[in-house]
């Protein structure tokens, strides 16, 4: 019993302790003129879906739910966001050349088609980020059309 109590105290202290370790927050008040949504004429339904399903990790502005401000969840998220933005950053979309854009659009289509994006670990918590079959098809159709027009 005593040992349980000690373990509980230890865990609590550790939990509180790690909260003081700073993390980098991915947040911005402004939408830069290079943003994908500003550069292209994106239908509203697709805008909303991209915003909810992709922008948390692929833009300069993450909508943090409360539990992602708490460690160790925040660490996990930080790494994902860094990695996600390195691959594709919708906020800086227009700084890419048209070759690079086509390349990225092609990858977007492939990733959605293969069900690799949005990540399972993300949709597990963000149920609203799951793409239904229709939504996926709609996005793929739009992105493909955009790619062919570039």
């Amino acid at each position: 019993m005593k040992i349980l109590k000690i373990i509980a105290i230890i865990l609590l202290v550790a939990f509180v302790g790690i909260q003081f370790i700073p993390t980098e927050r991915n947040q911005s008040d402004t939408v830069p003129p290079t943003d994908f949504m500003l550069v292209h004429n994106v239908p509203e339904t697709i805008q909303n879906k991209l915003q909810v399903s992709c922008y948390d990790c692929h833009s300069n502005n993450t909508q943090y739910p409360w539990y992602n401000k708490v460690q160790p969840a925040a660490w996990f998220l930080e790494d994902h966001i860094k990695e996600g933005k390195a691959e594709l950053n919708f906020s800086e979309w227009d700084s890419l050349s048209s070759r690079r854009k086509k390349s990225k659009l092609r990858s977007i289509v492939k990733q959605i088609e293969n069900g690799e994006m949005p990540l399972d670990s993300y949709t597990l918590i963000h149920k609203d980020a799951i793409l239904s079959k229709d939504e996926a098809e709609e996005i793929i159709g739009f992105i493909t059309q955009l790619k062919n027009s570039l």
Binding site: K2, I6, I9, I10, V13, A14, G17, I18, I21
Partner: peptide, 21 residues
């Protein structure tokens, strides 16, 4: 005695946390 133990525990945890970081 138990106080000593928990103090030790806290120190240990602090150490582990720092190591982890």
């Amino acid at each position: 005695m138990s106080k000593l133990k928990s103090t030790l525990g806290i120190v240990a945890i602090a150490f582990i946390t720092l190591t982890a970081v």
